[in-house]
Design a binder for these strands. Structure first.
Lengths: 219, 219
DNA sequence: CAAATTTGTTAGAATGATCTAACTTGTTAC
DNA sequence: GTAACAAGTTAGATCATTCTAACAAATTTG
């Protein structure tokens, strides 16, 4: 069984992997806030456990077993976040830190019960998919608001970034998952987008923000 | 901040301490399933942190700071157990192992919210008191069923042992906290007690069982 | 009370996770 | 295409937590 530290490495590898599933050691080390040698030695040990394929000076790759292990930890994380929001009344900006700890609990019944109580949700409070019990993730491809056309009606469906600061910004603008947005215009100069939605007639969203909002076209 | 290991030592010291608050090293080591030298070195390190008073060959004593620290961990444990039973539908025999992990989570809001959702309970599912936010424990002195007199009407209020096996035994006899028991007789030979309660007219409870049932006299 | 037993201590080693310093390999930019 | 820089590796150390073996102190028992 993976230690909490190993679980964190697996999760980071999963989250950092590019389209080919590759991760560079320095990204991994940076993401986990450890030195390069620390990450290097840990990767060797994850290889011994059969979770990572590693060759000197080559990018890192999770094995299928490693991917499953990682997805199951992410499953616990996302179920927990959803439980905290739906059943305990937390805001979506408060749940990450708590879930970061709860995800390491080894108690299948506990997560099973959360899942049941919520009616088997498939996305977390930030719109990210919850892997199933076998570690399979339904890949959804949403469109960033930044690449939508003026005139379109879209619905906010997920985020590419879930930092507390970003979530608090969205709260301040009353933007939540499900919010329907009419795209009024796009500024050529700074790529900001002007939208209207319930209670907000003329809200300008910077490029930085609109890139991070994933939407589904309604019209 | 205490590591998970240190937290487990503090908790064990708290739970093992006798009327004078003293614990022997061998009890501690046995309770935590570690060797004597391991416990010995950990105790020295807890002393450095100011949580334990330790002198060679003398019994161990928690400092006031250590007592508070321990009580706050036990608070998290017991709040969690109650939450699992009251809000998540677990049986009282299922919650210990889960709470044993959840108690190490550092997230005051999380436990605060559990507490609120349950209306600030003062006992856990096994009748043990939940320490308050300052680590104070309301000491309740219940009577073991084994020392009650035939004829008495009593109510099951707490347990001195909460092992899964004991709890499953109680489940099998439909004995729960709150059950009202009429003591019919006591066998002189083996100190077993015969009781009646709802749906059970003549139930014989061994000495081992009746010692572990704590009751409050109703008449 | 001395012998036997239990309890506690010290020394020394192992493992997991981390670090810094020094070095090597790979990549990028003139 | 080499010089500079970035990325990755190795060596060696530290800290926390654990162990076994050997020994010492305290307690119990005949």
């Amino acid at each position: 069984m993976a230690s909490t530290t190993e679980e964190n490495y697996l999760k980071a590898l999963f989250n950092l992997s590019n389209s080919q599933g590759e991760v560079n050691l320095s990204e991994l080390a940076h993401s986990l806030q450890v030195s390069l040698p620390t990450a290097n030695s840990m990767v060797k040990s994850l290889q011994k456990s059969g979770w990572v394929n590693y060759e000197k000076y080559k990018p890192l790759l999770l094995t299928p077993a490693g991917q499953k292990e990682a997805a199951l930890i992410i499953r616990k994380h996302r179920l927990t976040e959803m439980f905290l929001v739906k059943k305990m009344g937390f805001g979506w900006e408060e749940v990450h830190e708590i879930a970061e700890q709860v995800e390491h609990i080894h108690a299948p019944k506990f997560f099973q019960r959360m899942d049941e109580m919520m009616g088997f949700p498939t996305i977390d409070p930030h719109g990210s998919p919850i892997p199933d019990k076998l570690g399979r993730i339904q890949e959804i491809h949403y469109t960033p608001l930044s690449s939508c056309k003026p005139g379109q009606l879209v619905q906010l469906t997920a985020l590419t970034n879930s930092s507390t600061e970003f979530l608090e910004f969205l709260n301040s603008r009353k933007l939540a998952l499900g919010t329907e947005l009419r795209i009024l215009s796009r500024e050529a100069y700074d790529s900001s987008v002007v939208v209207s939605y319930e209670g907000h007639m003329n809200e300008t969203l910077s490029e930085k923000v609109s890139e991070r909002l994933l939407v589904r076209a309604l019209e």
